[in-house]
Design a protein around this nucleic acid. Structure first.
Lengths: 306, 306
DNA sequence: CATATCCATAAGATAAATCTATGGTTCGAT
DNA sequence: ATCGAACCATAGATTTATCTTATGGATATG
């Protein structure tokens, strides 16, 4: 089987125009070139497609059948290359994203919306889960991109870590809002909403308080910072939360913002990471999305550091 | 769009084996050859299909998609060439045959049956009609092959004429059966079954009688010779009929043949023809069938000339 | 640390496609 | 009839594409 697309294209053109010379003109080739293409095509198929009668070509019934196949193949090929071009231009494709709760409500939807605005053919799966689940999904290649708390190193996951500087959430009418930077001393003994148990972020916060000689009063222990802001709004506590959660607050609480955020010193981090399946290259689409995701994470991390 | 099947085959093999070197071995090419095929393929698609990581190839998700398309195209092409081979070997195709009554009952079915015995994929339409209808069907290209009485010359029909020597049908117990050749003199004044009105065959028969000085007694006028044999069996008449009709008699009247046939002199012909649409080449299948049809007509024409 | 395997590249060799030139045939119009 | 314009096929020259050999760099394996 040594056919070529050129032969098929030449054959199609000959069938359309009814003559080799005409087809040659349409294809910007010389007549002998097309003649040869047809001859070798017939030889490879083992059957004559045209009858050479009195110096002219006459289509044989077999040619009609072969034309249908030819059209189908060329059409498919054409469509396929077009699709690949679309994929190359990021106009088409599939993107499966799994993200942690802090980013799921506003940040990630906003990024996805911006990203796909000019890509009507791109399909997106966007799932919110706890970081541990996201790890599994990425490791098992069920998702292309994950945003989660930094997992333990694993051969199955490629990570790009971001140390998000946590900031202090407090009521705008709180006296502490006067300060441009909040320290453990400021919050000494005051009720806090924190992450639970042995979360690295909690440990780091406790360490900051301890080394500053401040009293650490964890009143609310939560799985993540999202619900904490309501508690702060109610005046029940303070919260040293990650900037993604803080940023979300501005995105949904557009008017009458009861809360404000202040940098916290010393820096306490929440370590998050962009996750990708290892041993499998990212699609062009993934890479492009990760670019804007990275940029947004860096921007959010800066947003509250004045 | 300048892709080639070679590139697709190479790509498929690389996807299967996971490496260029392996694929090259499978394809009986050198590794650089395959490498180049893949490179140019990527260039023409405008997108990388593999990631070159630490000296190895890693499939990108885009490659997976493209593979599906590639498989489909190659599969279709493969199937198509196979079918063309079948067609070339006359193992596949379509044959539309229209035949006149004299040949429809035994001769043509027998020929078709012989022809398609080893061609299970060949589809046949076999229709019996009066010669005038067959002409129309062939001229309008509704049928590929016609067997009919020779029509008036027409630009739309290609004809191959056979002058069938008519023979005399008579009862085996008739005294005339003793003779090896029947002449108009033998039948002078005796009742005949003939074709009707101004049919050339009737006119020719009448002329033979006249020039022999014999009396022509047309007792039964029929549209064709088939029913005549029954009348001869009943002893009601003689019939100078065409050899196809006579041959049919042997094919269905296997035992107790009440009739016999004798050559008639001078020769009186029934002119029949194989018809094909003009300005359209025959399929390989048509040509092949016409070959055996021609042979059979010649054989039948000899059969009664002892 | 040596060895084997992988891929890419370059240069030369081979094969394929294309073009130019030509001749034969048919058809239509002088 | 004869001429000219189409048509197609073939042959030889030329360009283009493809393959191979040779080589070097990178990475795994034992």
């Amino acid at each position: 089987m040594n056919l070529s697309f050129k032969q098929l294209q030449a054959f199609r053109e000959v069938m359309r125009t009814g003559s080799i010379s005409e087809a040659a003109r349409a294809l910007n080739r010389t007549q002998p070139a097309v003649s040869s293409l047809i001859t070798t095509l017939e030889a490879e198929l083992g059957i004559d497609l045209f009858e050479r009668n009195r110096g002219r070509l006459i289509k044989k019934p077999e040619a009609q059948f072969f034309l249908e196949e030819t059209e189908a193949i060329l059409e498919r090929l054409n469509h396929c290359t077009k699709t690949m071009k679309e994929i190359a231009d990021l106009k088409e494709g599939r993107l499966r994203i799994a993200c942690m709760p802090a980013s799921s409500q506003f940040m990630m939807p906003r990024l996805v919306a911006d990203f796909v605005r000019d890509k009507p053919q791109v399909k997106v799966s966007l799932m919110m889960r706890a970081s541990a689940i996201i790890e599994e999904w990425i490791a098992s290649q069920q998702f292309d991109i994950g945003l989660a708390e930094t997992p333990a190193p694993s051969g199955a996951i490629k990570t790009e870590t971001f140390e998000l500087a946590c900031i202090c959430a407090l009521r705008s009418d709180d006296p502490l809002a006067e300060k441009s930077i909040i320290t453990p001393k400021d919050l000494s003994g005051r009720p806090l909403a924190t992450l639970q148990e042995d979360h690295p972020n909690l440990l780091a916060t406790q360490a900051a308080f301890k080394s500053a000689g401040a009293q650490f009063n964890a009143r609310f222990e939560l799985r993540n910072f999202q619900p904490a802001l309501k508690l702060v709004e109610e005046g029940l506590c303070y919260c040293i939360c990650d900037p993604m959660t803080a940023s979300s607050y501005y995105e949904y609480q557009l008017q009458e913002q009861a809360l404000c955020f202040r940098p916290f010193a010393p820096e306490v981090h929440l370590s998050v990471a962009i996750l990708q399946p290892a041993h499998r290259p990212a699609s062009e689409l993934s890479s492009a999305f990760i670019d804007i995701l990275r940029a947004d994470l860096l921007a959010i991390n800066q947003q509250f550091q004045t």
